[in-house]
Simulated assay, not measured.
Amino acid sequence: MSVRPGAEPYSHDGTGDHARTGIVLAHGFTGSPASMRPWGQFLAEAGYTVRVPRLPGHGTTWQEMNRTRWQDWYAAVDSAFRELHEQCDQVFVAGLSMGGALATRLAQEHGPRVRGLMLVNPAYKVDDIRLRALPVLQTVLPSLPGIGNDIKKAGEDEVCYDRIPLKALFSQTRLWATVVRDLPEVTQPVVLWHSVEDHIVPTSSSELFLSRVSSTDVTENVLHDSYHVATLDHDAPRIFEESVQFIERLS
């Protein structure tokens, strides 16, 4: 199945002093690597080795996504991490929204092999009463209207679906449950950015993460000029620069 223009994965092998530091960046639910590409390119220009995988079922059609599950999405980021772990001296993982949950799962599964965790509006829960009906609803209704491109800055596009595939959404809730259960296993240094105004993921999601992890090196940054997809929004340059500061401090 053909991939939508702009939704292709991004890969860069670093150069110079930073080449042996790898970063895996994971995009969000129904989104695509387009939401992480500018961040990945910023890190690549700084000399780092970068991987932005396209999660299975994303960047094609929502119908195809409905045939995938969270274990498929995790396998993609896990494969990218394992590749960089073989190639690099240290590897950082980063994620936006559901990608944040996948990055957190990498930290839980790989322990100290993950040097640091970088999260932007990570999704571990959504306060929507309709989710209570999802176990039944996903068996009779294929999709609902989409929620993508929650971006304050005009002219940006994360190349996402205009429908929410419900079988995939139900699987995402299983991912949340698994990751939240194991949050105390997260011990790595963390930097987390969350938007004051986010129409997709509530602030309580980040609060849940911060209240449960065992990490002692935690930096929380509040974004005042971005919506949910902050990696494409007004605060993106700040996120990119602060991520490099975080990596350099830990290297």
Rank of each mutant, 00 (worst) to 15 (best):
S2Q: 12
V3S: 06
A7M: 04
A7S: 06
E8S: 03
P9L: 00
Y10H: 08
S11C: 12
H12F: 13
T15C: 07
H18A: 11
H18R: 15
R20G: 08
I23L: 08
I23V: 13
L25D: 07
T30F: 07
T30I: 05
G31A: 13
P33N: 05
A34C: 04
R37Q: 10
W39N: 10
G40Y: 09
A46V: 04
G47C: 01
V50E: 04
R51M: 07
V52Y: 03
V52R: 02
P53Y: 01
P53N: 02
L55T: 01
L55N: 00
L55K: 00
P56W: 00
G57R: 02
H58E: 05
G59S: 14
T60S: 06
W62S: 11
Q63W: 12
E64F: 10
M65T: 03
M65D: 07
R67H: 09
W70R: 11
W70V: 09
Q71R: 08
D72Q: 08
D72C: 03
D72F: 00
D72P: 15
V77M: 00
D78E: 13
S79K: 12
E83F: 13
L84F: 03
H85N: 15
Q87M: 15
C88H: 15
C88G: 11
C88I: 15
Q90S: 11
V91L: 09
F92Y: 11
A94D: 03
A94R: 05
L96F: 03
L96I: 05
S97G: 10
S97V: 15
G99C: 06
G100L: 10
A103S: 09
A103V: 13
Q108P: 02
Q108A: 14
G111S: 03
R113H: 14
M118R: 01
M118T: 05
M118W: 04
L119P: 13
V120I: 13
A123H: 04
Y124I: 07
D127C: 01
D128F: 12
R130S: 12
R132Y: 14
L137Y: 03
Q138C: 08
S143L: 09
I147C: 15
G148R: 08
N149Q: 02
A154L: 00
A154D: 05
E156G: 10
E158L: 09
P165W: 09
P165A: 10
P165V: 14
P165C: 08
L169P: 08
Q172E: 10
L175S: 12
A177F: 07
V179Q: 01
R181T: 13
P184H: 15
V186I: 11
V186T: 07
V190Y: 02
V191H: 06
V191E: 07
H194K: 02
V196I: 11
V201C: 05
P202D: 12
P202W: 15
S206P: 05
S206W: 08
E207H: 06
R212N: 02
D217W: 09
T219Y: 07
E220S: 11
E220P: 08
V222T: 12
H224N: 06
T231K: 07
T231I: 10
T231L: 14
H234G: 15
A236N: 09
F240D: 05
E241M: 04
E242C: 02
S243I: 09
V244H: 03
V244A: 04
Q245E: 11
R249A: 12
R249F: 09
R249V: 14
L250P: 12
